[in-house]
């Protein structure tokens, strides 16, 4: 189907037949490569003003420089972005609560209290109570345990397999690359949710099967992104310079290709954590998650929908919570992406 047909330009002068588009792409790549150097005032002033990226004076010789200064500057700019800080704090809270829910609640997620059925949200019950009088806030936190773990399993599967396939494919090229990309294409033809459903059908229900199903479902994106990055980085002049300097491929891979490819993959990983959470929630909403009385986020929302008329919070508050988690992850990913550019 729609495989990338970017010809593997060998970095030679473009053969006469090579399209102008390829030339433009190369120029864009060069510009992108030079982008980190935009400490000069005229950055982005004019497209095509290739030479105008840098003036011949940047920082005085006496000024400190180097990695740590750069990192500190990055941290400083990120620290003043309130949205970003808020998102990071919220995600940190959710992750901590997933591993130690007891820190944020003293109640038992399964203890029922018939007297307090369907209480609306209050200071006592932050998210209210459900039809059995169980505290929903507590159930949400214990639900994090299942959902976040499932998301991490899914992400682990996707990253490990996707990264391996992408690197192999991008480095080897030729037949192997074509074969791998065909496989990924086929995966693309089956929508993630359906593929997950098929896997869940075969593996049975529960948190772990759902996690595996989602992990396999979102894996192709990692394989493709990694491959594209490896293909991009491996033709950059500094990789060639390293090769010309006598470095072996494994060395080039470890020191140049992987570190320089990891940016977009990391952005995708953060983004896809959110996606995985949504799929996991959807699958448990459809009834394929953990068995009761355990409840993932999706199950909680699903359980509350019978009481929408009388007690809408039972369903809607957990839903908002999930949305907040995913939104935070999206925001973090987007902020990192903008920094990367």
């Amino acid at each position: 189907m729609t495989t990338s047909v970017v010809p593997e330009t060998t970095g030679t002068e473009a053969p006469a037949a090579a399209s102008a588009a390829a030339a433009a792409a190369a120029a864009a790549a060069a510009a992108a490569a030079a982008a980190p150097a935009t400490a000069a005032p005229v950055a982005g002033a004019k497209p095509g003003a290739g030479g105008a990226l840098l003036s011949e004076r940047l920082i005085a010789d006496s000024e400190p420089g180097g990695r740590w200064v750069g990192l500190r500057a990055t941290a400083r700019t990120l620290a003043v972005k309130p949205g970003f800080v808020l998102a990071v704090l919220f995600i940190a809270f959710v992750v901590v609560s997933a591993f130690a829910p007891g820190l944020f609640t003293s109640r038992d997620p399964y203890s029922t209290a018939p007297a307090e059925r369907m209480d609306s949200p209050s200071l006592n019950h932050l998210f209210g109570t459900d039809e059995l009088g169980r505290d929903l806030w507590t159930r949400m936190l214990y639900g994090s345990q299942l959902t976040i773990k499932a998301a991490l399993i899914a992400l682990g599967i996707a990253i490990v397999i996707g990264l391996a396939l992408g690197v192999l494919s991008g480095l080897s090229g030729g037949f192997f690359d074509a074969l791998l990309m065909r496989i990924v294409d086929v995966q693309l033809a089956i929508p993630v949710l359906l593929l997950s459903l098929a896997i869940v059908t075969a593996l049975g229900f529960g948190t772990v099967p759902v996690a595996i199903a989602v992990g396999v479902g979102i894996m192709p994106a990692f394989a493709r992104t990694t491959r594209a990055e490896v293909l991009r980085v491996k033709t950059l002049p500094f990789v060639e310079a390293s090769r010309a300097g006598g470095a072996s491929w494994p060395r080039v891979l470890l020191t140049h290709v992987l570190p320089n490819s990891c940016g977009p993959v990391a952005v995708l990983a953060v983004l896809d954590t959110g996606v995985a959470i949504l799929y996991i929630a959807s699958l448990s909403f459809l009834g394929f998650g953990a068995a009761p009385p355990q409840a993932e986020w999706g199950t909680l929302i699903s359980a509350g929908r019978n009481y929408l008329v009388t007690a809408p919070w039972v369903s809607l508050l957990p839903g908002l919570f999930v949305a907040a988690v995913v939104l935070s992850l999206n925001h973090i990913s987007k902020t990192i992406q903008e920094r990367e550019r």
Partner: peptide
């Protein structure tokens, strides 16, 4: 828009 679970949107 992509952050809200679809079933949540439906319920709302």
């Amino acid at each position: 828009g992509a952050s809200f679970p679809q079933f949540f949107i439906a319920l709302v």
